[in-house]
Amino acid sequence: MNRLLQDRFDRWHVLVLLLTTLGAAALLLTAGGGGDAAARSELNRQLEQDVAYRARIDFLQDLYRPVLDLEKSGARQQALLKLEEIGRRYPGEGYGFIIKGRILLQLDAVEEAVANYVEGVRLNGDFADRQGAFSAWNEIDQLVSKQLPSFSERARTHPDNASLKRVLNNLHYLQSRLAGGCE
């Protein structure tokens, strides 16, 4: 310690160190809601992020409500056409792919349903989460559990069929995403 305070140079620097450290601590402790608007917004990035996410959930649910209503009433083809209309304005939205996958599955278009689920999950991993506003984990799990054995068998008996291989790869992708892990 003595070595650090051996002359005026040392004492001056220790003084600056103490003053700046204490000053910074005091500012942090007393600042409260102070500071300019830009700084406040930076400090609230978590809030901004969470608000944007909630807004996205609400927006997408509103946007796709007519499709979901049609699907619920059994008007599946009409729901698919409505999806086309929405797709003209918002192409490449993952939620649309998930809904389309579900409707196509109901219409027995299994290969295309799988491809749509894959597209949706690739665009947004939220759909493969077990929980959350957009979780489609259960329906994807049911799809994989039901279709994987049959497509594995078909691919085994038709080893040169590239289309079956493609569906099988898609099912394995979904299976892997359902299993979790880091992305």
Binding site: E42, L43, N44, R45, Q46, L47, Q49, D50, Y53, G125, D126, D129, G132, G180, G181, C182, E183
Partner: peptide, 15 residues
């Protein structure tokens, strides 16, 4: 956990 440090609410970051 100040507001400028981000914490995932979904995905592997939330696990």
């Amino acid at each position: 956990q100040p507001g400028f440090i981000l914490f995932s609410t979904r995905g592997s970051g939330a696990q």
